[in-house]
Nucleic acid binder design. Sequence first.
DNA 1: CCCAAATTGTAGCGTAGGCTACAATTTGGC
DNA 2: GCCAAATTGTAGCCTACGCTACAATTTGGG
Lengths: 153, 153
Amino acid sequence: MNRPPTKSVKAYPLPLKGNPGRTREEHSQETALDYAELIAELISTTGAARVTELARRLGVTHVTVNRTIQRLQRGGLVRTRPYHSILLTGAGWKLSEESRRRHEIVVGFLKSIGIPDAVARSDAEGMEHHVSKKTLAAFVKHLKRRGLHKPSR
Amino acid sequence: MNRPPTKSVKAYPLPLKGNPGRTREEHSQETALDYAELIAELISTTGAARVTELARRLGVTHVTVNRTIQRLQRGGLVRTRPYHSILLTGAGWKLSEESRRRHEIVVGFLKSIGIPDAVARSDAEGMEHHVSKKTLAAFVKHLKRRGLHKPSR
DNA sequence: CCCAAATTGTAGCGTAGGCTACAATTTGGC
DNA sequence: GCCAAATTGTAGCCTACGCTACAATTTGGG
Ligand SMILES: [Mn+2]
Ligand SMILES: [Mn+2]
Ligand SMILES: [Mn+2]
Ligand SMILES: [Mn+2]
């Protein structure tokens, strides 16, 4: 029977896909990062982070927000009181800061190479979670060289 | 009780998070794209795409590969015969081509801004799925300007 | 040609992240 | 102050993507 060759070109083992498991690991983190970032933003701009508003801004139902918030609470990132604003813990706040910094660098970089603002923001929302420290540093360097770097704020 | 202000600064509605739902939609696609790309690569370099080899290269178990392949088959991207090589359908092959092109552009761009090859390949594996057509075009333009563009092959 | 090893397949389980439907609580306009 | 509307919470249900454990099939060396 016409089986394709199995050990034909088996000269030496094929390389692994550039870092197996890393993408999956990043995906398990990114919802938490986006929530922390958005909660911080809502608190600082409106004074509260309410379930309904999170749901509206994230484009999911309030049920999804509730379940995710429960998970973040188990992970020690937020605290909640029934029918009150969601609050960030110390860890949650720190995470939100890191996330925002990373987010702004990615947006700034994309814009610096000519991407329109709306596209840059949309692309960054997903890309930001897959940019390594080294690449982020290269983005910052690129921005600094063009005098576009906003240090920490 | 000290409820945070709810309708305080409600001057006009806060903007949605730069394209709600897009990231989730991309995530549901990206496993399929990576599988299609890898299957094509294995077939062209070794003559066959076997379950075990896919599992090894992707860093998951063969069980995960089987389940994903079943899903891709339901989606019309691959065909399988028990204990034989996985084959790409027309749609699957087309998808693998698009995916490979996109992948190479992202890797090339990252390398062009000074990212080491290994880091570029690792970062690209996740980033590639969140880069819009416009941003991809900007990457290509950037590469062309530096004479680093490899046109499709 | 035979049987152990490798490969492939499947059953069952877990978590993340969605949803609808419905219940409970709070808010605010009259 | 009352009650309808808004908000928040919860009970299932679904799919994607992982896994372990075990079964079935194929392969290849002796
Ligand atoms: Mn963000
Ligand atoms: Mn994001
Ligand atoms: Mn990928
Ligand atoms: Mn992703």
